[in-house]
Design a protein around this nucleic acid. Sequence first.
DNA 1: TCTCCGATTAGAC
DNA 2: CTAACGGTCTAATCGGAGA
Length: 421
Amino acid sequence: MKRQIALVDCNNFYVSCERLFRPDLKTTPVVVLSNNDGCVVSRSNEAKAVGIKMGQPWFECKELAEAHGVLALSSNYALYADLSNRVMNILGGYSPMTEVYSIDECFVDLTGMPKLRDISYQMRERVIQWTGIPVCVGIGPTKTLAKLANHIAKKHPRSKGVFNYNDLTEAQQTRLLSQISVDEVWGIGFRLSKRLAAHHIHTVQDLRAAHTPTLRAEFGVVVEKTQRELQGIACVDLQDHVPDKQQILSSQSFGKPVTELAVLQDALSVFSATASEKLRAQNSHAALIQVYLRTNWFREDQKQYCPSMTVPLPMPTNDSLVINRWVQHIAELLWRDGYKYKKAGIMLGEISPVAVVQADLLEPVKTSDTKLMRAIDGLNSRFGRGTIKVSSGGLRAEWGMRQERESPSYTTDWNSVPAVA
DNA sequence: TCTCCGATTAGAC
DNA sequence: CTAACGGTCTAATCGGAGA
Protein backbone atom coordinates (compact mmCIF):
# COMPACT_ATOMS: atom_id res chain seq x y z
CA MET A 1 0.00 0.00 0.00
CA LYS A 2 1.23 3.48 -0.86
CA ARG A 3 2.26 5.46 2.18
CA GLN A 4 0.36 8.66 2.87
CA ILE A 5 2.65 10.85 4.94
CA ALA A 6 1.30 14.24 5.91
CA LEU A 7 3.47 17.15 6.93
CA VAL A 8 1.53 19.72 8.90
CA ASP A 9 3.32 23.05 9.17
CA CYS A 10 2.14 26.16 10.99
CA ASN A 11 2.01 29.30 8.91
CA ASN A 12 4.47 32.03 9.95
CA PHE A 13 4.40 30.37 13.34
CA TYR A 14 5.93 32.94 15.71
CA VAL A 15 4.04 35.79 14.10
CA SER A 16 0.82 33.78 14.27
CA CYS A 17 1.41 33.21 17.99
CA GLU A 18 1.93 36.90 18.62
CA ARG A 19 -1.19 37.81 16.68
CA LEU A 20 -3.39 35.57 18.82
CA PHE A 21 -3.18 38.10 21.61
CA ARG A 22 -3.04 41.12 19.36
CA PRO A 23 -5.96 40.73 16.95
CA ASP A 24 -5.42 44.34 15.99
CA LEU A 25 -2.27 43.19 14.19
CA LYS A 26 -4.19 40.91 11.84
CA THR A 27 -3.38 43.03 8.79
CA THR A 28 -0.31 44.86 10.09
CA PRO A 29 3.03 43.63 8.75
CA VAL A 30 4.81 41.92 11.67
CA VAL A 31 8.19 40.29 12.18
CA VAL A 32 9.62 38.40 15.15
CA LEU A 33 13.30 38.83 15.97
CA SER A 34 15.82 36.31 17.26
CA ASN A 35 17.59 36.62 20.62
CA ASN A 36 19.18 40.00 21.22
CA ASP A 37 16.72 41.36 18.69
CA GLY A 38 19.36 40.34 16.15
CA CYS A 39 17.78 38.77 13.08
CA VAL A 40 14.33 38.34 11.56
CA VAL A 41 13.16 34.77 12.24
CA SER A 42 9.47 34.96 11.39
CA ARG A 43 7.54 37.19 9.01
CA SER A 44 3.88 37.79 8.31
CA ASN A 45 2.84 37.63 4.66
CA GLU A 46 2.69 41.43 4.59
CA ALA A 47 6.26 41.65 5.87
CA LYS A 48 7.41 39.16 3.23
CA ALA A 49 5.69 41.24 0.57
CA VAL A 50 7.63 44.31 1.63
CA GLY A 51 10.87 42.47 0.88
CA ILE A 52 12.18 41.59 4.34
CA LYS A 53 14.25 38.43 4.07
CA MET A 54 14.27 35.43 6.37
CA GLY A 55 17.29 35.56 8.68
CA GLN A 56 18.12 39.14 7.79
CA PRO A 57 19.83 41.20 10.49
CA TRP A 58 17.33 43.66 11.91
CA PHE A 59 19.66 46.67 11.77
CA GLU A 60 19.95 46.01 8.04
CA CYS A 61 16.24 46.04 7.22
CA LYS A 62 15.04 48.28 10.02
CA GLU A 63 14.72 51.33 7.82
CA LEU A 64 12.83 49.50 5.08
CA ALA A 65 10.61 47.87 7.67
CA GLU A 66 9.75 51.04 9.51
CA ALA A 67 9.05 52.85 6.25
CA HIS A 68 6.34 50.25 5.61
CA GLY A 69 4.96 50.28 9.13
CA VAL A 70 6.34 46.84 10.02
CA LEU A 71 6.06 46.02 13.72
CA ALA A 72 9.04 44.10 15.12
CA LEU A 73 8.66 41.97 18.26
CA SER A 74 11.25 40.22 20.40
CA SER A 75 10.84 36.47 20.50
CA ASN A 76 8.90 34.87 23.34
CA TYR A 77 9.79 31.21 23.33
CA ALA A 78 7.70 30.30 26.36
CA LEU A 79 4.63 31.37 24.41
CA TYR A 80 5.62 29.56 21.21
CA ALA A 81 6.47 26.33 23.03
CA ASP A 82 3.15 26.34 24.81
CA LEU A 83 1.14 26.87 21.64
CA SER A 84 3.25 24.32 19.82
CA ASN A 85 2.34 21.71 22.43
CA ARG A 86 -1.34 22.42 21.97
CA VAL A 87 -1.10 22.08 18.20
CA MET A 88 0.91 18.85 18.45
CA ASN A 89 -1.58 17.35 20.90
CA ILE A 90 -4.39 17.92 18.44
CA LEU A 91 -2.42 16.38 15.56
CA GLY A 92 -1.51 13.40 17.74
CA GLY A 93 -5.20 12.53 17.78
CA TYR A 94 -5.19 11.82 14.05
CA SER A 95 -2.76 8.92 13.92
CA PRO A 96 -0.92 6.52 16.20
CA MET A 97 2.22 7.44 14.27
CA THR A 98 3.30 11.06 14.42
CA GLU A 99 6.67 12.76 14.61
CA VAL A 100 7.04 16.23 16.02
CA TYR A 101 9.76 17.46 13.71
CA SER A 102 10.21 20.99 15.00
CA ILE A 103 8.42 23.60 17.04
CA ASP A 104 6.02 24.25 14.17
CA GLU A 105 5.99 21.05 12.11
CA CYS A 106 4.66 17.55 12.53
CA PHE A 107 4.63 14.47 10.31
CA VAL A 108 1.43 12.43 10.57
CA ASP A 109 1.19 8.97 9.01
CA LEU A 110 -2.25 8.72 7.41
CA THR A 111 -1.55 5.54 5.43
CA GLY A 112 -4.64 3.44 4.84
CA MET A 113 -7.09 6.04 6.03
CA PRO A 114 -10.13 6.76 3.85
CA LYS A 115 -11.19 10.25 2.77
CA LEU A 116 -7.78 11.87 3.14
CA ARG A 117 -9.00 15.18 1.78
CA ASP A 118 -11.71 15.40 4.38
CA ILE A 119 -9.32 14.46 7.15
CA SER A 120 -6.78 17.04 6.02
CA TYR A 121 -9.29 19.86 5.90
CA GLN A 122 -10.66 18.81 9.25
CA MET A 123 -7.16 18.93 10.77
CA ARG A 124 -6.74 22.46 9.54
CA GLU A 125 -10.12 23.52 10.82
CA ARG A 126 -9.65 21.92 14.18
CA VAL A 127 -6.21 23.37 14.80
CA ILE A 128 -7.31 26.85 13.91
CA GLN A 129 -10.51 26.60 15.94
CA TRP A 130 -8.89 25.15 19.03
CA THR A 131 -5.64 27.16 19.01
CA GLY A 132 -6.04 29.98 16.51
CA ILE A 133 -2.94 28.89 14.62
CA PRO A 134 -3.30 28.46 10.84
CA VAL A 135 -1.58 25.43 9.32
CA CYS A 136 -1.07 23.85 5.90
CA VAL A 137 -1.07 20.14 5.09
CA GLY A 138 1.09 18.45 2.47
CA ILE A 139 0.83 14.74 1.71
CA GLY A 140 3.21 12.45 -0.15
CA PRO A 141 4.63 8.92 -0.17
CA THR A 142 7.85 10.01 1.58
CA LYS A 143 8.79 12.65 4.11
CA THR A 144 10.67 14.64 1.48
CA LEU A 145 7.68 14.66 -0.88
CA ALA A 146 5.34 15.51 2.00
CA LYS A 147 7.52 18.53 2.74
CA LEU A 148 7.43 19.55 -0.89
CA ALA A 149 3.65 19.06 -1.01
CA ASN A 150 3.38 21.31 2.03
CA HIS A 151 5.42 23.95 0.25
CA ILE A 152 2.93 23.80 -2.64
CA ALA A 153 -0.03 24.00 -0.26
CA LYS A 154 1.46 27.12 1.29
CA LYS A 155 2.36 28.79 -1.95
CA HIS A 156 -0.75 28.22 -4.01
CA PRO A 157 -3.91 29.75 -2.57
CA ARG A 158 -5.95 27.52 -4.91
CA SER A 159 -4.98 24.53 -2.80
CA LYS A 160 -6.80 26.01 0.19
CA GLY A 161 -4.00 24.83 2.46
CA VAL A 162 -3.99 21.15 1.49
CA PHE A 163 -2.06 19.39 -1.25
CA ASN A 164 -1.73 15.65 -1.89
CA TYR A 165 1.12 14.69 -4.19
CA ASN A 166 -0.17 11.13 -4.32
CA ASP A 167 -3.21 12.30 -6.28
CA LEU A 168 -1.03 13.27 -9.27
CA THR A 169 -0.39 11.15 -12.36
CA GLU A 170 3.21 10.50 -13.35
CA ALA A 171 2.94 13.15 -16.06
CA GLN A 172 1.55 15.70 -13.63
CA GLN A 173 4.34 14.95 -11.15
CA THR A 174 7.01 15.54 -13.78
CA ARG A 175 5.40 18.77 -14.91
CA LEU A 176 5.03 20.06 -11.37
CA LEU A 177 8.55 19.15 -10.22
CA SER A 178 9.99 20.81 -13.33
CA GLN A 179 8.57 24.11 -12.11
CA ILE A 180 10.10 24.02 -8.64
CA SER A 181 13.64 25.12 -7.91
CA VAL A 182 15.82 22.39 -6.41
CA ASP A 183 16.67 24.49 -3.36
CA GLU A 184 13.10 24.08 -2.13
CA VAL A 185 13.86 20.43 -1.43
CA TRP A 186 14.38 19.36 2.19
CA GLY A 187 18.12 18.85 2.66
CA ILE A 188 19.21 20.93 -0.34
CA GLY A 189 20.51 24.20 1.03
CA PHE A 190 22.35 27.19 -0.29
CA ARG A 191 25.69 25.52 -0.99
CA LEU A 192 24.45 22.24 -2.40
CA SER A 193 22.12 23.96 -4.83
CA LYS A 194 25.06 25.99 -6.19
CA ARG A 195 27.11 22.84 -6.67
CA LEU A 196 24.15 21.03 -8.22
CA ALA A 197 23.70 23.91 -10.68
CA ALA A 198 27.24 23.27 -11.92
CA HIS A 199 25.97 19.80 -12.87
CA HIS A 200 22.96 21.31 -14.64
CA ILE A 201 20.59 20.30 -11.89
CA HIS A 202 18.29 23.27 -11.34
CA THR A 203 14.81 21.92 -10.73
CA VAL A 204 13.43 19.21 -8.48
CA GLN A 205 12.72 17.16 -11.59
CA ASP A 206 16.38 17.48 -12.66
CA LEU A 207 17.44 16.03 -9.33
CA ARG A 208 14.84 13.28 -9.42
CA ALA A 209 15.98 12.19 -12.88
CA ALA A 210 19.74 12.60 -12.39
CA HIS A 211 22.18 9.71 -12.93
CA THR A 212 22.32 8.10 -9.50
CA PRO A 213 25.93 6.77 -9.44
CA THR A 214 27.26 10.18 -10.52
CA LEU A 215 25.12 11.89 -7.93
CA ARG A 216 26.38 9.54 -5.26
CA ALA A 217 30.01 10.04 -6.26
CA GLU A 218 29.80 13.83 -6.42
CA PHE A 219 27.46 14.62 -3.56
CA GLY A 220 27.46 11.69 -1.15
CA VAL A 221 24.82 9.54 0.46
CA VAL A 222 22.68 12.36 1.77
CA VAL A 223 21.85 13.68 -1.68
CA GLU A 224 21.36 10.17 -3.01
CA LYS A 225 18.81 9.46 -0.30
CA THR A 226 17.07 12.70 -1.11
CA GLN A 227 16.83 11.65 -4.74
CA ARG A 228 15.31 8.29 -3.78
CA GLU A 229 12.80 10.04 -1.59
CA LEU A 230 11.83 12.29 -4.50
CA GLN A 231 11.29 9.13 -6.57
CA GLY A 232 8.83 7.93 -3.95
CA ILE A 233 11.17 5.42 -2.33
CA ALA A 234 11.22 5.94 1.43
CA CYS A 235 14.68 6.28 2.96
CA VAL A 236 13.72 8.19 6.07
CA ASP A 237 11.20 6.74 8.49
CA LEU A 238 9.07 8.54 11.00
CA GLN A 239 10.53 8.59 14.49
CA ASP A 240 7.79 8.53 17.06
CA HIS A 241 9.97 8.97 20.11
CA VAL A 242 12.46 11.75 20.61
CA PRO A 243 15.97 10.33 20.85
CA ASP A 244 18.18 11.49 23.69
CA LYS A 245 20.50 14.36 22.83
CA GLN A 246 24.05 13.36 22.01
CA GLN A 247 25.35 16.79 22.87
CA ILE A 248 23.82 19.68 24.76
CA LEU A 249 24.72 23.29 24.21
CA SER A 250 24.02 26.45 26.06
CA SER A 251 25.39 29.62 24.58
CA GLN A 252 24.46 33.20 24.05
CA SER A 253 25.60 36.35 22.37
CA PHE A 254 25.92 39.11 24.92
CA GLY A 255 23.77 42.22 24.93
CA LYS A 256 26.94 44.29 25.04
CA PRO A 257 30.62 43.41 24.80
CA VAL A 258 32.08 41.72 27.88
CA THR A 259 35.50 42.85 29.04
CA GLU A 260 35.70 41.44 32.56
CA LEU A 261 36.29 37.86 33.61
CA ALA A 262 33.77 38.11 36.45
CA VAL A 263 31.02 39.02 34.02
CA LEU A 264 31.92 36.16 31.72
CA GLN A 265 31.91 33.76 34.64
CA ASP A 266 28.52 34.97 35.73
CA ALA A 267 27.15 34.18 32.28
CA LEU A 268 28.87 30.80 32.22
CA SER A 269 27.35 29.83 35.55
CA VAL A 270 23.91 30.37 34.04
CA PHE A 271 24.85 28.34 30.96
CA SER A 272 26.12 25.54 33.21
CA ALA A 273 22.84 25.45 35.08
CA THR A 274 20.79 25.45 31.89
CA ALA A 275 22.81 22.74 30.18
CA SER A 276 22.94 20.42 33.16
CA GLU A 277 19.22 20.85 33.71
CA LYS A 278 18.62 19.68 30.15
CA LEU A 279 20.96 16.80 30.80
CA ARG A 280 19.04 15.69 33.89
CA ALA A 281 15.72 16.12 32.09
CA GLN A 282 16.69 13.25 29.80
CA ASN A 283 18.21 11.29 32.66
CA SER A 284 21.72 11.35 31.29
CA HIS A 285 25.14 12.39 32.36
CA ALA A 286 28.06 13.77 30.41
CA ALA A 287 31.75 12.93 30.33
CA LEU A 288 32.97 15.83 28.21
CA ILE A 289 32.81 19.58 28.69
CA GLN A 290 33.71 22.21 26.16
CA VAL A 291 33.84 25.93 26.86
CA TYR A 292 34.34 28.56 24.19
CA LEU A 293 34.51 32.33 24.00
CA ARG A 294 34.63 34.58 21.00
CA THR A 295 34.97 38.18 20.07
CA ASN A 296 32.64 39.78 17.53
CA TRP A 297 33.74 38.44 14.16
CA PHE A 298 31.65 40.99 12.30
CA ARG A 299 33.89 43.72 13.68
CA GLU A 300 36.91 43.44 11.44
CA ASP A 301 38.35 46.54 13.06
CA GLN A 302 38.69 44.80 16.42
CA LYS A 303 41.26 42.17 17.32
CA GLN A 304 39.84 38.69 17.36
CA TYR A 305 40.23 35.85 19.81
CA CYS A 306 38.16 32.64 19.71
CA PRO A 307 39.58 30.13 22.15
CA SER A 308 37.93 26.90 23.20
CA MET A 309 38.91 24.02 25.41
CA THR A 310 37.50 20.54 25.64
CA VAL A 311 37.97 18.54 28.81
CA PRO A 312 37.17 14.87 29.35
CA LEU A 313 35.81 14.32 32.86
CA PRO A 314 37.27 11.68 35.15
CA MET A 315 33.71 10.60 35.93
CA PRO A 316 30.49 11.37 34.05
CA THR A 317 28.19 13.76 35.88
CA ASN A 318 24.96 15.72 35.61
CA ASP A 319 25.53 17.79 38.73
CA SER A 320 25.23 21.52 38.03
CA LEU A 321 27.76 22.35 40.71
CA VAL A 322 30.36 19.91 39.46
CA ILE A 323 29.86 21.00 35.86
CA ASN A 324 30.00 24.64 36.85
CA ARG A 325 33.28 24.17 38.72
CA TRP A 326 34.90 22.72 35.62
CA VAL A 327 33.45 25.44 33.45
CA GLN A 328 34.69 28.22 35.72
CA HIS A 329 38.12 26.70 35.81
CA ILE A 330 38.32 26.37 32.04
CA ALA A 331 37.12 29.95 31.66
CA GLU A 332 40.05 31.21 33.71
CA LEU A 333 42.45 29.29 31.51
CA LEU A 334 40.94 30.66 28.31
CA TRP A 335 40.53 34.25 29.43
CA ARG A 336 42.81 36.95 28.02
CA ASP A 337 42.48 40.56 29.04
CA GLY A 338 42.03 43.25 26.43
CA TYR A 339 39.42 41.68 24.16
CA LYS A 340 35.77 42.53 23.70
CA TYR A 341 33.95 39.23 24.05
CA LYS A 342 30.68 38.93 22.19
CA LYS A 343 29.64 35.37 22.78
CA ALA A 344 30.37 32.38 24.98
CA GLY A 345 28.96 28.95 25.45
CA ILE A 346 29.40 25.53 26.89
CA MET A 347 28.84 22.14 25.33
CA LEU A 348 28.31 18.85 27.11
CA GLY A 349 29.29 15.72 25.19
CA GLU A 350 29.90 12.00 25.64
CA ILE A 351 26.38 11.75 26.95
CA SER A 352 24.98 8.47 28.21
CA PRO A 353 21.95 7.34 30.21
CA VAL A 354 22.50 7.38 33.96
CA ALA A 355 21.02 3.89 34.37
CA VAL A 356 23.61 2.26 32.14
CA VAL A 357 26.60 3.08 34.31
CA GLN A 358 27.66 0.13 36.38
CA ALA A 359 29.21 0.60 39.78
CA ASP A 360 32.84 -0.34 39.78
CA LEU A 361 33.32 -3.30 42.05
CA LEU A 362 36.49 -2.01 43.58
CA GLU A 363 35.80 1.66 43.76
CA PRO A 364 32.58 3.05 45.19
CA VAL A 365 30.71 5.35 42.80
CA LYS A 366 30.99 8.93 43.84
CA THR A 367 27.38 9.98 44.08
CA SER A 368 26.82 13.57 43.27
CA ASP A 369 24.14 15.40 45.11
CA THR A 370 21.13 13.97 43.30
CA LYS A 371 18.68 15.04 45.97
CA LEU A 372 19.76 18.65 45.68
CA MET A 373 19.58 18.51 41.88
CA ARG A 374 16.08 17.01 42.00
CA ALA A 375 14.96 19.72 44.34
CA ILE A 376 16.36 22.39 42.04
CA ASP A 377 14.70 20.90 38.97
CA GLY A 378 11.42 20.52 40.85
CA LEU A 379 11.32 24.10 42.04
CA ASN A 380 12.36 25.45 38.68
CA SER A 381 9.69 23.56 36.81
CA ARG A 382 7.07 24.56 39.39
CA PHE A 383 7.92 28.23 39.67
CA GLY A 384 9.79 28.95 36.47
CA ARG A 385 13.37 28.61 35.31
CA GLY A 386 15.73 30.63 37.41
CA THR A 387 13.84 30.29 40.68
CA ILE A 388 16.84 28.43 42.02
CA LYS A 389 20.15 28.89 40.31
CA VAL A 390 23.80 28.36 40.87
CA SER A 391 25.52 31.28 42.47
CA SER A 392 25.49 34.25 40.22
CA GLY A 393 26.96 37.57 41.17
CA GLY A 394 24.00 39.50 39.83
CA LEU A 395 25.96 40.74 36.83
CA ARG A 396 23.30 39.74 34.37
CA ALA A 397 22.70 43.32 33.32
CA GLU A 398 26.26 43.32 32.01
CA TRP A 399 25.78 40.44 29.60
CA GLY A 400 22.09 39.59 29.29
CA MET A 401 20.07 39.77 26.11
CA ARG A 402 18.65 42.91 24.71
CA GLN A 403 14.95 42.31 24.26
CA GLU A 404 13.18 45.57 23.94
CA ARG A 405 10.11 44.46 22.08
CA GLU A 406 8.76 41.53 24.05
CA SER A 407 5.08 40.71 24.25
CA PRO A 408 3.61 39.42 27.53
CA SER A 409 3.50 35.65 28.24
CA TYR A 410 -0.27 35.34 28.34
CA THR A 411 -0.43 31.57 28.30
CA THR A 412 2.37 30.74 30.69
CA ASP A 413 2.48 33.58 33.18
CA TRP A 414 -0.57 34.62 35.15
CA ASN A 415 1.01 37.96 35.92
CA SER A 416 0.89 38.87 32.24
CA VAL A 417 -2.84 38.42 31.95
CA PRO A 418 -4.67 41.72 32.23
CA ALA A 419 -7.17 41.97 35.08
CA VAL A 420 -10.79 41.61 34.07
CA ALA A 421 -13.08 44.35 35.23
C1' DT B 1 47.06 0.04 5.06
C1' DC B 2 43.37 0.38 8.17
C1' DT B 3 40.96 2.45 11.81
C1' DC B 4 39.82 5.76 14.93
C1' DC B 5 39.17 10.48 16.22
C1' DG B 6 38.56 15.32 16.20
C1' DA B 7 37.53 19.09 13.25
C1' DT B 8 35.05 20.84 9.55
C1' DT B 9 31.11 21.28 6.62
C1' DA B 10 26.27 21.43 5.50
C1' DG B 11 21.73 21.46 6.64
C1' DA B 12 17.24 22.34 9.31
C1' DC B 13 14.40 25.58 11.65
C1' DC C 1 22.27 57.06 23.54
C1' DT C 2 24.53 52.78 22.89
C1' DA C 3 25.78 49.28 19.78
C1' DA C 4 24.10 47.34 16.17
C1' DC C 5 24.21 39.65 12.66
C1' DG C 6 20.54 33.53 16.79
C1' DG C 7 20.75 29.14 19.12
C1' DT C 8 20.74 23.94 19.03
C1' DC C 9 21.28 19.95 17.00
C1' DT C 10 22.60 15.91 13.69
C1' DA C 11 25.08 13.42 10.13
C1' DA C 12 28.59 12.99 6.76
C1' DT C 13 33.08 13.72 5.38
C1' DC C 14 37.94 14.86 5.65
C1' DG C 15 42.62 14.53 7.12
C1' DG C 16 46.02 13.24 10.38
C1' DA C 17 47.74 10.05 14.11
C1' DG C 18 48.53 5.78 15.66
C1' DA C 19 48.20 0.63 15.30
